[in-house]
Amino acid sequence: MSYADVGITILWTFLFGYIIVASIDFGAGFFSYYSVVTGHQNVIHNIVQRYLSPVWEVTNVFLVFFYVGLVGFFPDAAYYYGTALLVLGSVAIVLLAIRGAYYAFNTYGSSTKERSKVYMALYGATGLLIPAGLSTILAISEGGIIEEAGGRVLFDWREFFTNPYTWSVIILAIVSVLYISAMFLAYYAKKARDQGAFKILRGYALFWSGPTILASLFAFFQIYKQNPEHFMAMIDNSWMFVASLLFFLVAVYFMVKGENLGLGFIAVMLQFGFAWFGYGRSHLPYILYPYINIHESITNESTAIALIIVFAAGLLVVIPSIVLIMRLFLFNAKYVSGQSPKKG
């Protein structure tokens, strides 16, 4: 394996981690808001809040990991994407900033149970807008939207908005967020023995499962039009997509039965894992068609080695921290069921 391969595998794994962790968070925001609007606020809000409070900052870190690693391993990416994505990237920053800051204000700042409607609306709306916005970068990476002409990098807004592939990716992103989130929160509610919340969340999970597969198929066939080369490479890796579909069926089966939901969520992660790595693998060697090729734009050897070493050392910090936080909050029966004292 070359440094370029190692680098892109690390980055892709980070982004996968972000997709899972952030989807839970984004979807939770939307479901909270939806439950306020439809009037059974308190049924699921507590579950969502108990899960999210200690981990909200962790989510952002995965995204920053990916971004810093991308610029580190493939500095050309900073140039092409940086120049072209000024507007889109800035809007994403603003949305992430609003979401993060108001989440913290509301969770740590209010001593009583008061929650303003404005806050809930911001939290719910950003929960869908951020994944929609970020996912378009995947659409852009297929080429045809960023062009280099006369030494300048240009962004074709018309092509961006009129391209059905862009929209298929946005739909897939939103639907997946709601599906992943509902699957996880239903599992978490079950663990907390909160029957009321579990029933509602299980309903959401099953409701969004069908559209997830339809949206995946839609996006899959749009790639054929957008980038036939990529599509053919996907066909070569078709076993990964078949595996993804099988794990989807396993996950839905457990959810219908309402048991083994921990295994069920692992199946959800495998479902998205196979699809994600199948998509990523067939996308190579390009990070941006046709300008950034991992073998040409990989950083120099010494920096690549240093980054890989730091990554390995970093895992020694990250993995124990995640295990610790899971034991203290996610899998601590007392905390999950709400018997532990709350924040200081």
Binding site: E57, L324, L328, F329
Partner: peptide
């Protein structure tokens, strides 16, 4: 980026440790 990626990358790990332990500290008085 070829030279400064390393400290930037390290910073994210340091921040990660900080963020995750701050969350634990706040909720475990």
């Amino acid at each position: 980026g070829r030279a400064i990626a390393l400290p930037l990358f390290m910073e994210t790990f340091a921040f990660f440790a900080e963020a995750i332990f701050l969350g634990m500290y706040l909720y475990t008085w």
